[in-house]
Amino acid sequence: MDRESHTNSGPFLLVLAVLLVLQGCSEPIDNSVESVAANSTLEPLFATVIREPPVPHGVRAVAPNGEEVSLQCNACHSVRAHNLKSASAVDLDEFHQGMHYQHGSLTCVSCHQPDDGYSSLRLADGTSIAFFESIQLCGQCHGPQLRDYEHGAHGGMTGYWDLTRGGRERNHCLHCHDAHKPAYADFQPVAPPRDRFAPANHHAESSEAFHATSGLGDSHHE
């Protein structure tokens, strides 16, 4: 993959926090909805932290000595000319090869900031933001999703529903959505229930295995 992370290796969990997302303070992300307090009482609330997204810290490349290395974005982009029209890795001769891009009609610089050697992300108004703040960037187009996220109705979480008793950890957009191909990819679900007697009205492709092992008859004790 070809994504770079923020430059410092950082804590495992980014403490973006309740303050940012849920508590409705004046942080940049919260600019759309009314403030939402997690609890009406005045007890101190535990923090909600957003997990670091599972993205590689740089671009994989092969060094002249044959070693695999991870390159920072600005290792190249600070010295190369920007191609502002580029919208796919297919157009490129080197680096970012094999990257699948399928995200509307956006170009690279719709989100990546060319002005600082692609070391940060770029909001629509030109403001630079750090990579880990990309939630804000996504929210520019995906407003309803951001709104739902801010209200705890989108994106996985663990921890306490009652923030007076404990904190929460939340997924980042990138835990589920590849920024370059955000549609959720197919995957094999957890195995279906092993009913003693399988429902007859489920689809044929999933029924054979179950009919083979169950079927009506006397139970195994007989």
């Binding site: 007697f197 007859a200 009205n201 009506l216 006397d218 139970s219 007989e222």
Partner: peptide
């Protein structure tokens, strides 16, 4: 049959 969630699971009494 069908169940409350419309699954058709059949039943025939066992020997017991």
């Amino acid at each position: 049959i069908p169940s409350t969630l419309h699954e058709v699971v059949e039943y025939a009494p066992s020997m017991t």
